[in-house]
Amino acid sequence: MTLLTIDDLVVEHRTPGRPLVRAVAGASLTVAAGEVVGLVGESGCGKSTLARAVCGLHPAAAGTITVGGHPVSPLGLRSRSRALTGAQMVFQDPYASLNPRRRVGAQIADGLRTAGDRTTTPEDLLERVGLPRDFAGRFPHEFSGGQRQRIAIARALAVRPSLLIGDEPISALDASAQSHVARLMRDLAVESGAGLLFISHDLSVVRLIADRIAVMYLGRIVETGPTAEVWADPRHPYTRALLGAIPHPDGRGVLPAELPGDVPDPADPPSGCRFHPRCPLVMDVCRDREPEFGPVACWLHEPA
């Protein structure tokens, strides 16, 4: 069953005096119940904007987003419909996403109240994320980054979400806590039958936990596929460059391949295929026409 459907989504950022930026420029993606989808790409490619749009934190300029069949409307001052609280987000920085002046138990209880859950207690949720039950009476500053992120996950789970979204949930954590927290998110989401959209620029972690990978470049999804397949046989030149840049601990002293150039300005994207100025396999057609097909949006892999 498809939980989240994003269809041809466009999200624009407007800043007075600056050109309009299309952070997400026609991206399509689905997440099924019990499925973990990893969304990867370089910083500035629009991953976070896409995640925020799914939660209604950015309005869509075009295209549609539905969660469990309900279209997502921008978050306003009025309370959300119960159906849309099914999508819950774990943010990047647990030092900013938890309220420093409220006890963590009270913050988790908010979610339980929203869900109308009278049987579960905040202590139960803390236990599920691997923290002692008596932490509920403490304040966020008493915890390390990894512990805070576990609390943020407990808070998101309190609402019994059908879709959990992690927007770089591990990048603010110590290296030793990163894979623990990532695995925890995966286990809890899959256990409860929810879908997980996991956004990260760390490919090695995404590879560990995702069933399916979506690769984003400059506002568009350029390749999707089962994780093992994409890892073993990346087809889009951008995916190949991304994977080729990961250094291997084989002790041979091989410097990773460099992808020339920077991510172009999203306010002024290149014509045709957005990757063509950096692509080692660029052809004439790439400069003129944008490949608007999947699962590999590249003229070398045009479906017959």
Partner: peptide, 16 residues
Amino acid sequence: TALDVTVQAGILRLLR
């Protein structure tokens, strides 16, 4: 550590 792998590759080459 704070950089994308593609950028990391460039910095490592530079350092070396």
